[in-house]
Amino acid sequence: MNKILIYIKGLTKKYQRNKEDIVALDNINIKFEIGKFYAVMGHSGSGKSTLINIIGLIETATSGEYYLNGKNISDFNENEKANIRAKYFGFIFQDYNLDPNLKAYENVMLPMLIDKKVKNKDAKEKAIKLLVSLDLTHRINHYPKELSGGEQQRVAIARALANNPEIILADEPTGNLDKKNEQKIFSDLKKLSESGKCVIVVSHSLEIKEYADVIFTLEDGTIRW
């Protein structure tokens, strides 16, 4: 058994809509280990994105406990959560979420510059190396609008890897891509998990089953294995 990075216990998320309580996640208990590729599947509205957002600390649970590397971070404040996001997590979004005014390498540099001690020159070098490793050598100086969907997503992956995080979170990373690019992205994510990272991917695509080590389905806010 690999080291457990994330342990979620009794996680519940409720929303208020028209004065009615909507339960998005209901008493979720789950563990995530390093070096594994997790696929979170389920139909629309099942709570997949909510779960991954809570894992990534960009959304708050209504109740439950969240352990990261053995430490209970459930009650961390915003600054503490920001520190954790910067150190432990790399995000990949469905719509890539690249800054349109920054070139590819500048987008990748962005997470690195959180650290005040990091020099611009060093960050640039590292960003270029990451892009080269993802077969984007010829796109280093291009703006997002000059890239194809697949290339943009690979830039997003490079950005997610910028601070060498232990956990990669991807919410429908191939939602806007064709099959060929989808396979490429899943393949890249698989390599990341094989390199020791914990990769958690939300996806509708059945293709993911070819790559994932662990697959679970969310149905009405609860997990089905």
Binding site: E78, A86, F91
Partner: peptide, 16 residues
């Protein structure tokens, strides 16, 4: 909003 959301998601603090 886009920029701030992105920066927050990747770990920038509010005052940064």
């Amino acid at each position: 909003s886009q920029e701030i959301g992105l920066l927050k998601a990747i770990g920038y603090k509010k005052w940064d």
